[in-house]
C-alpha cells in the first residue's frame, strides 16, 4: 500500500465523524410525527404530553448511560427533584412556568453534580448500589417531609399561570402538549449539540475505553460528573414539565420503578443513538396505557419477559435492529 492510498483510506472515517453533526432528513421524522399527533389525535393529547415528557426523560438518560456509559438505577431521583421543585414553586405562589423549568434544572443539576462527585468514584455493582441508594434516600426524605411535600397524599394546590402570559393550560391539553413539544425540541437541540461536541466525543471515548482516555490525559472523572450533572438537569426539566402539566406531584416520581421504566424505554429504543428515546417512549407508554388498564400485574410480567428477550436476542434495541437490517440489505 502506498502512502497516498493509506491517506485516502484514512480520510473517509474522519469525514464521517466531521460531518456527523449535520442534520439529515430522517431526523425530521419525530417532529413530523409529533405535529401529526397534535392534528390527528386531539383527544389523546394528555397521553401525548406524558409521552413527550418520557422522551425527554429518556433522552437525558441517553446522555448519561448511552454516551457516558454510566449504568444508573437512580435517574428518577433527578426527575423527582425537578417535579418537586416546580411543584413547590407553583404551590407557593411562583406560578410562571418557564422560569420554574430553569429552577428545576438548576436544583436537579446541582444535586446531580454533588451526588455524582461522590458516587462516580466507584464503579460496577457499588456504583449501581449507590445510584439506587440516592433514589431511596430522596424517596425516604420526600415521604418523611410530608409537611412540605404532602407525603403519600401527593403535592396539591399547584397553580400554573398561562404560558408566556397568554396561553391558558386548557382542559384538552393542547397548550400542555405544544409546551412539552417546544421544550423537548429545545432540549433535544442542546443534547444533540452536546454529543457531537468534543465533550460528547470524549464521553464516548470514556465509555469505550476508559483506560486509554486516562492515558491520553482526558480528565475522566470530571467529564463523567459533568455529563451526569447535565443529564440530571435535563431529567429535572422533564420532571418539572410533568408537575406543571398534571398539576400534581406524587411520591412515585422518585422510585426504583420509574428509574427502571426509563432505562427500559431507552434500551427498547436503542441507547447511545439520541433517537432511542423517541422510539422507545411512545411504544412503552402506549402499551402501558392499554395493557395496564387490563391488569398492572400482567404488565410487569410482559415487560420483564420482553426485557429478557431483548437482552438475549436484540441487543441495541429497535434502532439497533433497524441498523442491522440496513447493513444486511443496503
Amino acid at each position: 500500500m502506498t502512502k497516498l492510498d493509506r491517506r485516502t483510506a484514512a480520510v473517509h472515517p474522519v469525514d464521517h465523524i466531521a460531518h456527523s453533526h449535520r442534520l439529515r432528513w430522517p431526523e425530521a421524522l419525530p417532529w413530523l410525527l409529533i405535529a401529526a399527533t397534535y392534528l390527528l389525535f386531539p383527544s389523546y393529547l394528555a397521553l401525548g404530553s406524558q409521552v413527550l415528557i418520557m422522551v425527554l426523560f429518556a433522552l437525558s438518560l441517553d446522555l448519561v448511560l448511552g454516551y457516558a456509559g454510566i449504568v444508573t438505577l437512580g435517574h428518577a431521583a433527578f426527575f423527582g427533584l425537578g417535579a418537586y421543585t416546580a411543584g413547590l414553586l407553583a404551590a407557593h405562589g411562583w406560578s410562571e412556568p418557564i422560569s420554574a423549568l430553569f429552577a428545576a434544572a438548576v436544583v436537579a443539576g446541582a444535586f446531580g453534580a454533588a451526588s455524582g462527585a461522590i458516587i462516580l468514584r466507584t464503579s460496577g455493582l457499588t456504583l449501581l448500589m449507590l445510584t439506587l441508594a440516592v433514589v431511596s434516600l430522596l424517596a425516604e426524605a420526600a415521604n418523611k417531609a410530608d409537611s412540605i411535600t404532602g407525603g403519600a397524599d401527593g403535592l396539591q394546590g399547584i397553580v400554573i399561570n398561562p404560558l408566556l402570559g397568554r396561553f391558558d393550560f386548557d382542559l384538552y391539553g393542547r397548550t400542555a402538549y405544544l409546551y412539552c413539544a417546544a421544550v423537548l425540541l429545545v432540549m433535544w437541540y442542546v443534547v444533540r449539540r452536546l454529543v457531537h461536541s468534543p465533550f460528547g466525543r470524549s464521553l464516548t471515548g470514556i465509555r469505550e475505553n476508559r483506560l486509554r482516555m486516562h492515558a491520553i490525559g482526558a480528565p475522566v472523572r470530571r467529564r463523567l460528573v459533568t455529563a451526569y450533572a447535565i443529564g440530571a438537569a435535563v431529567a429535572g426539566v422533564a420532571g418539572a414539565l410533568q408537575a406543571q402539566t398534571t398539576q400534581f406531584v406524587a411520591l412515585n416520581v422518585i422510585s426504583f420503578h420509574l428509574s427502571a421504566a426509563v432505562l427500559i424505554i431507552l434500551i427498547f429504543g436503542g441507547a447511545g443513538r439520541l433517537y432511542g428515546a423517541f422510539v422507545g417512549a411512545p411504544i412503552y407508554m402506549v402499551a402501558q396505557d392499554m395493557l395496564s388498564r387490563l391488569d398492572p400485574v400482567y404488565w410487569f410480567f410482559w415487560v420483564g419477559l420482553l426485557l429478557v428477550l431483548v437482552v438475549l436476542f436484540a441487543r441495541g434495541g429497535i434502532l439497533g435492529c433497524v441498523d442491522g437490517v440496513r447493513r444486511r440489505w443496503p
Binding site: G124, L128, V297, F300, V303, G304, L306, V311, L312
Partner: peptide, 17 residues
Amino acid sequence: EIDQVLFTIGLVYMATA
C-alpha cells in the same frame, strides 16, 4: 454490565408478577 442489569430486572419483574 447494562445487559446483565436489564436482564436481571426483567427476571425480577417476572417473578414479582
